[in-house]
């Protein structure tokens, strides 16, 4: 669990972060979102003391971060950033081993950890471990960046627009992988982003910032249903809100027993794991108000109708 209490940072005349209070439960992903210059990166950097707060405190599991030397604190916190910042003069292996080496882990343990992490990110050890970063694609570099941040089993992970520089396809794939890994390891994560889609896709909790102030903190569904007037509603998007809401739930969630509908062999199918947004798109494309819901084996496990989608995506 991490708590920011009354966190404030003033640069000269300008208050970059203004009395910010936020609490992220263990194992959750919190997205800090806002336009550039809203203070979200400053907030993130105050957590690993790259920037010292003017006032306020940060507690990690109840422990004040100022009780520890900044370097030692940072070695406990994973950190991944937009430019990735892989060390160009070191191999992938040495990049991943950076923090474990700073912590003086024995070589054998480091070696084991590098293998583990490359496995976790589905990257072949023999292909990648001894490459220099400039040989990797943007997506591969960012994966290594994540592996490097995870290397010393941090209790907290800070990510500053980690997927900002990637093309949309790669970005989406990496977001999926990140979510999976985060769930598996249960690492508390704070993610800075300006992309509302990314926040909705990844976060358990979204904190919207503007002009250094925290405007609203809510779960994605709550934020979409009841955004505060002004900046937050603009951010979540007027007309698109419904679609974004649909994207939060899976077809399996909403499926009704199949016998309530008259399904024929021509009724289009959809996997139970797809999102409601995908279901709506398929209904429109197939000109069919009903979809047959199938599980991984292909067996029918229910059906979903247009009316239910409308109910699920509409406002309360």
């Amino acid at each position: 669990m991490i708590e920011l209490q009354g966190l404030t940072r003033v640069f000269g005349e300008r208050t970059a972060v203004d009395n910010l209070n936020l609490r992220v439960e263990s194992g959750q992903i919190c997205a800090l979102i806002g336009t550039s210059g809203c203070g979200k990166s400053t907030t993130l950097k105050m957590i690993n003391r790259l920037i010292e707060p003017t006032s306020g405190t940060v507690l990690i599991n109840g422990e004040d971060i100022r009780d520890q030397q900044p370097e030692l604190l940072r070695r406990r916190i994973g950190y991944a950033i937009q430019g990735v910042g892989l060390f160009p003069h070191r191999t992938v292996y040495d990049n991943i081993a950076t923090v474990p080496r700073l912590l003086n882990w024995p070589a054998k343990q480091i070696d084991q950890r590098v293998h583990e992490l490359l496995d976790l990110l589905k990257m072949d050890f023999d292909t990648f471990a001894y490459q220099y970063p400039h040989r990797l694609s943007g997506g591969e570099q960012q994966r290594i960046g994540v592996a490097r941040a995870l290397a010393a089993r941090p209790e907290l992970m800070l990510m500053d627009e980690p997927f900002g520089a990637l093309d949309p396809l790669t970005r989406e794939r990496l977001q999926g992988e990140l979510k999976q890994i985060q769930r598996m390891l249960g690492i508390t994560t704070i993610l800075v982003t300006h992309d509302i889609e990314e926040a909705i896709r990844l976060a358990d909790q979204i904190a919207v910032m503007d002009g250094g102030k925290l405007l609203q903190v809510a779960s994605p569904a709550e934020l979409l249903r009841n955004p505060r007037e002004g900046f937050v509603s603009q951010l979540v998007g007027g007309e698109e809100r419904a679609l974004r809401l649909l994207s939060l739930r899976s077809v399996g969630d909403l499926a009704q027993p199949a016998d309530q509908f008259e399904l024929s062999d021509d009724t289009p199918c959809i996997d139970a794991g797809m999102s409601l947004r995908d279901a709506l798109a398929r209904q429109i494309w197939q000109r069919s108000a009903v979809l047959r819901v199938v599980d991984e084996t292909g067996a029918t496990c229910g059906a979903v109708s247009l009316q239910e989608l409308i109910n699920a995506g509409g406002r309360d």
């Binding site: 790259l50 370097e71 940072r74 950033i81 910042g85 892989l86 923090v99 490097r148 941040a149």
Partner: peptide, 9 residues
């Protein structure tokens, strides 16, 4: 690169 190095401690 520098920010990453510092951020890693």
């Amino acid at each position: 690169v520098l920010q990453a190095a510092r951020g890693m401690g």
